[in-house]
Amino acid sequence: MPSLAGNGRRGGNRALSAPRLRVDSPERAGLDPGELRLLVRDVRAAVERGWAAGAVVVAGRGPVVAVEEATGWAVRYARYDEETGTGVELPPDARVPMTVDTPFDLASLTKLFTAVAAVQQLERGTLGIDARVGAYLPDFTGAAAHGVTVRQLLTHTSGLRPELPLYDAADAAGRLALLRAEEPVGAPGTYCYSDLNMLLLQHLLQRLTGCPLDVLIHGCVTRPLGMTATGFGPCPEAAATEDQRRPWGKADRGMLRGVVHDENAWALGGVAGHAGMFSTGRDLAVFCRALLTGGSYGPARILGPDYVELMLTAPGLGFAVDQPWFMGELAGRGAAGHGGFTGTSLVLDPATGVFLVLLANTVHPRRRPPDNTVRATAATRLHRAVRPL
């Protein structure tokens, strides 16, 4: 086992019972209410100008949820009209308003849960961080032949390309054959964000534990934390995503709600290491709180503090660290988090104990080039809200 790259500064070697989240005033959290009002105003304005059909924002510090707001629509459009380049709105009485309890397709935020499940195995000593993937998956000949390691999967430095067109394979056997044969295209150690890293990690964890990934994450992460609104789909009450059709999509599936948006995760049956989970803002705030307290929430413990620190210390294991493009001014001090293609993101800052969950259905009714300004601005507002406790 390598050095944990830490000295216990985020909680020492012992995880204690951590207070659960409660809703309270910004002042009780050591946050400036004026900045938080601006944060909510900015998100509402972004939805009104068409950044997303709707959004939910949850923010706080320590055990306090100081912001929990919803705006816009969970379902607004019936389809996308490619001739006019606009969404065809549902009648007002058929639309579904956004609420703070609306679940979202998390897209790549799923990777964080896969990463936690992997780091749990590191802590238990059943998985080596610098062990070769081929030692666990010898039939994945592409990765095995190139000596890809567990650390490289978790840090996106395996050299694997961003994705494979698994959705075009004829059947499950064909999809698995593509994954098993896939070889790195880049030099090992070179960063290249890739869904394939988490797909290989999924297969490794399943081979190692004998559990499907959805069962593993439920049993080891979401159930202990009481995250009852979090899991792999289907999730019928979720916010709608896309009228998914070619040429902008990679499959012809129509308007999606409650089923995974990502085409590869869909082709894999909805359970994948890189995408497929659904959750709410409050549940993700619990996830953030557990990590900020060194792996504990209430009486539950999912990781020890040193292993949480290993995940959140640059370059991060599964987590992105200090990325201003979506963390704004929270970046540069050890903030960690992730974004998702459907419009989801979360950021947590161990230095101040703040967390921000911003969920939006930006791909409803159709995907567009991402605009991360809203995410970055919200994180900056939260950073500027921090006051001495």
Results as ranks from 00 to 15, higher is better:
R245K: 05
P212R: 14
L225W: 01
L204C: 09
L199M: 15
R180F: 00
L204F: 06
L208K: 10
Y193Q: 08
V148F: 10
L213A: 07
R245L: 08
H146Q: 15
F232A: 09
M227F: 00
L225R: 04
P184H: 09
V221D: 01
G210V: 09
L196D: 15
S194W: 14
Y193C: 10
A143N: 02
F232E: 07
Q202G: 14
P236F: 02
L225E: 03
R180G: 03
C211Q: 10
Y167N: 02
S194H: 12
L160Q: 04
P165M: 03
T155R: 13
Q206I: 04
G189F: 01
G219S: 12
P165L: 02
G186H: 02
E183A: 13
D214A: 10
G174S: 07
A169P: 07
Y191M: 11
G147D: 05
E237Y: 00
G159N: 03
H146T: 08
L213T: 09
P212W: 05
P162D: 06
G219T: 06
R223Y: 03
R175P: 02
A172H: 03
C192F: 02
A170P: 09
G231A: 05
D171S: 08
S194E: 14
C220H: 08
D243V: 05
Y193D: 14
C220Q: 12
G219D: 15
C211I: 01
D195A: 14
P212Y: 06
H218A: 15
D171H: 09
F232M: 07
T149A: 10
L166K: 06
M198Q: 15
L176A: 11
G226H: 03
V185C: 00
T228N: 03
A172D: 15
S158H: 11
V148A: 12
T190H: 06
R180S: 07
M227S: 02
V150E: 02
L154E: 04
F232L: 08
E182A: 11
E163T: 14
D195P: 15
A181S: 14
D171N: 14
L164A: 06
G159H: 00
Y167P: 05
G147Q: 07
T222V: 04
Q202T: 13
D195N: 15
L179F: 03
T209P: 09
C235H: 04
V150P: 01
A229K: 00
D171Q: 08
L199G: 07
T157W: 11
R223F: 01
V221W: 01
T228F: 04
A170S: 11
G186D: 06
R161W: 02
L208S: 13
T157A: 13
P162H: 01
D168N: 01
P224I: 00
T241D: 09
A172T: 06
H203I: 04
V221C: 05
E183F: 03
G231E: 01
G231I: 00
Y167S: 12
T241N: 13
R207S: 13
A239F: 12
C192I: 05
L208W: 08
L200N: 12
D195M: 08
H156W: 12
N197S: 10
T241F: 12
L199C: 03
L154Y: 05
R207C: 05
T230L: 00
L196K: 09
T155F: 11
T155Q: 13
